[in-house]
C-alpha cells in the first residue's frame, strides 16, 4: 500500500506539490488526472527520488517503508517502478543487457539469486511476446530509434520483469495509436494483483477505458482537488477540469 500524507515538494526553488494526501491499498488502481503543469510528473519523480525534487513537508511510505529516506535504486528495490512519460535513450547499452542488469540488481537487493542467462532469456522472451515486443529489438540499444509505441511497450515489459509493488505510469497513453494502447493496457491489466498498487497518471480519459481505475483523483496546482470513482473520468471528459479545480481560486 502506498500512503502519501501532506506531501509538499519544490523543484528549482518553486513550490510544485502543495500538500498531497493519497492512499492506494494493495490491489487497487488509482488514476490521477489533471491539466498540464499541475504537478503529475513531479509527483512521480518525488516518489521515485529524482535529484532536484526536494520534499519540504509530508511523508510517503510503501508497505510501511519510508520511501523518502531511500536512494533511487533502493526505492526501486523496495518496489517502486516508474513508467516514464518520455523514456530515455541509452546508446551503447543493448536492451537485453540493460534488462538483465536491472533484474539482477533488484533480485540481489531483494535477497533473491541472480537468474542464469538462459532463464533470463526465457523470461524476457516470454513477456516480450505477450506485449508484442519483437526479439530483434532486445538486441538494439535501449530506446534508441524506437518508435513512441515501442518505447512505451518497453516500459511495460520492464515493469513486468521487475515485478514492482507500486507501478506509477506517467502518461503511458501519450503518443500511442489505438492498437498499441490496447496491447499496453492489456499488459498493465495483466499485472494487476492483490499485492500491487498502481498509480496511473493521464491527461485524457481514453486510457481509463482500458485500464479501469478503482478511484480517480483530480490534481491541480500541486494538490488533489477532487476524488471519486471511475465515472469521474467520464465527467471530466465532458465538462473539462474547470469545474473540479475552481477550489484553488479560493
Amino acid at each position: 500500500m502506498l500512503k502519501i500524507e501532506n506531501l509538499h515538494a519544490t523543484v528549482g526553488g518553486s513550490q510544485i506539490l502543495r500538500g498531497i494526501s493519497l492512499e492506494i491499498p494493495n490491489g487497487e488502481v488509482h488514476a490521477i488526472m489533471g491539466p498540464n503543469g499541475s504537478g503529475k510528473s513531479t509527483l512521480s519523480y518525488v516518489l521515485s527520488g529524482r535529484d532536484g525534487y526536494e520534499v519540504t513537508q509530508g511523508t510517503a511510505t510503501l508497505n510501511g517503508i519510508n520511501l523518502l529516506d531511500l536512494e533511487v535504486d533502493e526505492r526501486a528495490a523496495a518496489g517502486v517502478f516508474l513508467a516514464f512519460q518520455y523514456p530515455h535513450e541509452i546508446p551503447g547499452v543493448a536492451t537485453f543487457i540493460f534488462l538483465r542488469h536491472a533484474l539482477n540488481s533488484v533480485r540481489k537487493a531483494r535477497g533473491d539469486e541472480e537468474l542464469s542467462t538462459p532463464d533470463f532469456m526465457r523470461l524476457v522472451k516470454g513477456k516480450a511476446a505477450e506485449l508484442g515486443v519483437k526479439d530483434e529489438i532486445l538486441k538494439r540499444p535501449l530506446n534508441v530509434g524506437f518508435s513512441g509505441g515501442e518505447k512505451k511497450r518497453m516500459e511495460i515489459l520492464q515493469m513486468a520483469i521487475l515485478e514492482p509493488s507500486l507501478c506509477i505510469l506517467d502518461e503511458t497513453d501519450s503518443g500511442l495509436d489505438i492498437d498499441a494502447l490496447k496491447t499496453v493496457s492489456q499488459g498493465v491489466n495483466a499485472l494487476r494483483s492483490p499485492d500491487r498498487s498502481m498509480l496511473v497518471i493521464t491527461h485524457y480519459q481514453r486510457l481509463l477505458d482500458y485500464i479501469v481505475p478503482d478511484k480517480v483523483h483530480v490534481l491541480s496546482k500541486g494538490k488533489i482537488r477532487h476524488s471519486g470513482g471511475k465515472e469521474l473520468a467520464l465527467e471530466l471528459e465532458k465538462s473539462g477540469y474547470a469545474e473540479f479545480v475552481d477550489e484553488d481560486a479560493a
Binding site: 521515485s48 529524482r50 535529484d51 536512494e71 533511487v72 535504486d73 526505492r75 526501486a76 528495490a77 517502486v80 517502478f81 516508474l82 516514464f84 523514456p87 530515455h88 541509452i90 551503447g92 547499452v93 543487457i97 540493460f98 542488469h101 536491472a102 533484474l103 540488481s105 533488484v106 537487493a109 520492464q158 521487475l162
Partner: peptide, 17 residues
C-alpha cells in the same frame, strides 16, 4: 536517473554508461 530507477546501483550505471 532512468537506470537507477530500474534498480541499478550507481556503480553499475556508471560502468554500463
Amino acid at each position: 536517473f532512468y537506470m537507477r530507477q530500474r534498480g541499478m546501483s550507481m556503480d553499475t550505471v556508471q560502468t554500463l554508461l
